[in-house]
Design a binder for these strands. Structure first.
Length: 461
DNA sequence: GTAGGGTTAG
């Protein structure tokens, strides 16, 4: 019950519920949901969709699937096209594409539209599990709505365009020209300190609004659309979702989907070709932060740091706003450069600026510190993260187990594994891989100990 | 007025 005896309605509860789940506060979300039910506020399809998606995001996939199955059994409308889309996406992420396709069939039969978001997930899933043949089957299954044929047409016109690209023989390098040095990179990521937006923020903050329900939220709102030293807008929001415009438009959302497909396979040159065609055609939609983040992330993974900073530079030129993901990638890049200190300070600055640090940011820096051999500092950051109320997830634990195992700190690695299981987080396929490596680390330690004791033995005799 | 895809660990 809120102050003043006003009872929150379903929409208020849904918003809170979704916020808690996105902030990975699963327990709080469950408590809130129970409160909502006990107060007699009706849960809507929206509420359940948030819950299912939240369970997936909070490493409780089985619970999510079970909830979906139970809701389908109930009389009345508890599931809709979005529910199906959420579950299909999760199945695709887990590589269960056949099962995903079964659900597509079911949703279509029930009259729910298989829309662009759903098809995007499916296409990425098909490519990931090397089941391109399923695209044909998808086309045959879907009768309701017309997005699938138009996606196929889109793909065909993209491939036709790629066969005769405007600039043949170019590789990725000239696409994002940047000849700067590391110093310029620091400039790209530094924030205004004393004057300008930050200063203005502080001044405004001094004149506090007594009636404001939350000074913290006010501060967030003020910095949300501020501009950093380079003139690049910084937003605490993620890139906005836009709807597809049809196959003729070569729209940025489909480009982003295919960039993701090409980049995940390491096909950088094809991805760049696609981007080049897109940029040359200059359709009504510009590249957005998803587009640039995809490239940066891929360049970082390949170790092409110069190109990474070049993309960052271009984002600035295009006044494309950087979001949380952009900063995670920057931190990742700095980690690769062995600049863990700078990476830490970027996080610190962001935290000072808005106080909003998301779990991925923490995970990325923990990874950067760990890979840089700073295992202690990684653990420290983990503790700091927990202390500030951010719940660690499977990624956090996988990372910590991995870096500790690699550093030969077997005990620590096991400590994190136990902690993860204690928190009720289910291990995933990455955990399996990481644990295999841990086994190897133990083997190595054993054989080292054996040779050492042999040495001692031989000394003694 | 609230929910889903495409960027962030391996």
């Amino acid at each position: 019950m809120l102050a003043g005896g006003i009872r929150p309605d379903t929409i208020v509860y849904n918003s809170l519920l979704d916020g808690l789940l996105k902030a990975r506060k699963l327990d709080d979300a469950c408590n809130l949901f129970e409160k909502m039910v006990s107060e007699g506020t009706r849960a809507s399809t929206h509420s359940f969709n948030s819950l299912i998606h939240g369970l997936f995001k909070n490493s409780r996939p089985v619970a999510g699937f079970v909830l979906f199955r139970e809701l389908k059994k109930k009389k009345g409308t508890f599931v809709d096209g979005i529910s199906y889309s959420i579950v299909i996406t999760e199945l695709c992420r887990e590589g269960q594409v056949e099962e995903a396709l079964e659900l597509v069939k079911e949703m279509d039969e029930r009259g729910f539209v298989v829309d662009l978001a759903t098809v995007s997930s499916l296409l990425i899933g098909f490519h990931k599990s090397k089941r391109l043949d399923l695209t044909e089957r998808l086309m045959k299954i879907v009768r309701y709505g017309s997005i699938v044929p138009s996606v196929i047409q889109w793909k065909e016109s993209m491939e036709a365009a790629m066969r005769s690209p405007p600039d043949k023989g170019k590789d990725y390098t000239p696409l994002f020209p940047f000849t700067g040095s590391l110093d310029d990179v620091y400039n790209l990521i530094s924030f205004k300190s004393d004057q300008g937006i930050d200063g203005a923020c502080l001044n405004q903050e001094e004149a506090k609004d007594e009636w404001s329900p939350s000074p913290h939220l006010d501060k967030l709102a003020k910095i949300a659309d501020s501009v950093d030293k380079f003139g690049t807008p910084f937003t605490v929001h993620r890139g906005k979702r836009v709807h597809g415009l049809g196959y003729k438009t070569f729209d940025v959302d489909m480009v982003n989907t295919y960039l993701s497909i090409f980049l995940s396979k390491g096909k950088l040159s094809i991805a760049c070709k696609l981007f080049e065609i897109f940029a040359t055609l200059r359709r009504e939609k510009e590249a957005n932060s998803y587009t640039y983040n995809s490239f940066m992330s891929s360049f970082v993974k390949k170790g092409y740091l110069r190109e990474t900073w070049a993309v960052l530079h271009e984002m600035g030129e295009k006044l494309c706003s950087r979001d949380i993901a952009t900063y995670s990638i920057i931190i990742q890049g700095l980690g690769k450069l062995g600049e863990a200190e700078v990476a830490s300070s970027v996080l610190e600055q962001l935290s000072k600026k808005g106080g909003y640090l998301d779990i991925v940011m923490y995970n990325t820096l923990i990874n950067a510190l760990g890979k840089g051999g700073r295992t202690e500092e990684a653990t420290k950051l983990f503790n700091q993260m927990v202390a500030s109320g951010v719940n660690p997830d499977v990624v956090t634990f996988n990372t910590l187990i991995e870096v500790n195992a690699k550093a030969g700190r077997v005990k620590e690695a096991y400590k994190f594994l136990r902690k993860m299981l204690f928190l009720g987080l289910s291990p995933n396929h990455v955990t399996d891989k990481v644990l295999d490596n841990l086994e190897k680390a133990i083997e190595k330690q054993r054989s080292n100990q054996a040779t050492n004791s042999e040495k001692i033995d031989s000394k003694e005799t």
